Amino acid sequence: MRFNPRARLDSSQVQVRRGGGGGGRGLPIPIPSSTGGRGGLGGVVLLILIFVIVQAVNGGGGGAGGAGGAAPDDSQVQGLDCTSGADANKTEQCALVADVNNIQAFWAGELPQQADVAYSKSLAVFFSRSTQTGCGGATAQVGPFYCPTDKTVYLDTTFFKDMLQGDLGAKGGPFSEAYVLAHEYGHHVQDLLGTMGKVRTQKGPQSDTVRLELQADCYAGMWSKYATTVEDANGEVYILDLTQDDIARALDAAAAVGDDRIQQKSGGRVNPESWTHGSASARMYWFKTGLSQGTLDACDTFSARDLHL
Rank of each mutant, 00 (worst) to 15 (best):
T139S: 11
W286I: 07
V199H: 12
V189Q: 00
T157A: 11
D217F: 04
G43Q: 04
R18H: 07
L164N: 06
A71F: 09
Q132W: 02
R200E: 14
A105I: 05
F126R: 00
G60F: 13
S33Y: 07
F106Q: 06
L296G: 04
L80M: 14
L41S: 02
G19W: 03
G19R: 04
P28A: 09
C82I: 11
L291A: 05
D260M: 05
F160Q: 03
C94W: 02
G268R: 05
V210W: 11
T149F: 05
V54P: 01
A255W: 02
T228D: 06
G109K: 14
V54K: 05
S75I: 12
G39V: 07
A282C: 12
D74E: 10
G59M: 10
T295R: 09
R38H: 07
G235E: 10
A140D: 13
K171A: 15
P28S: 11
Q141G: 08
R17P: 03
Q13M: 11
H277C: 09
G37R: 15
L291G: 02
Q215I: 09
L193V: 06
R283K: 13
K225C: 04
A67G: 13
S274K: 06
L46V: 10
L181E: 04
G42K: 04
G197N: 03
A88P: 00
L251Q: 04
L212T: 13
R261N: 14
P112I: 13
Q78S: 10
S292D: 13
L123R: 07
T243K: 05
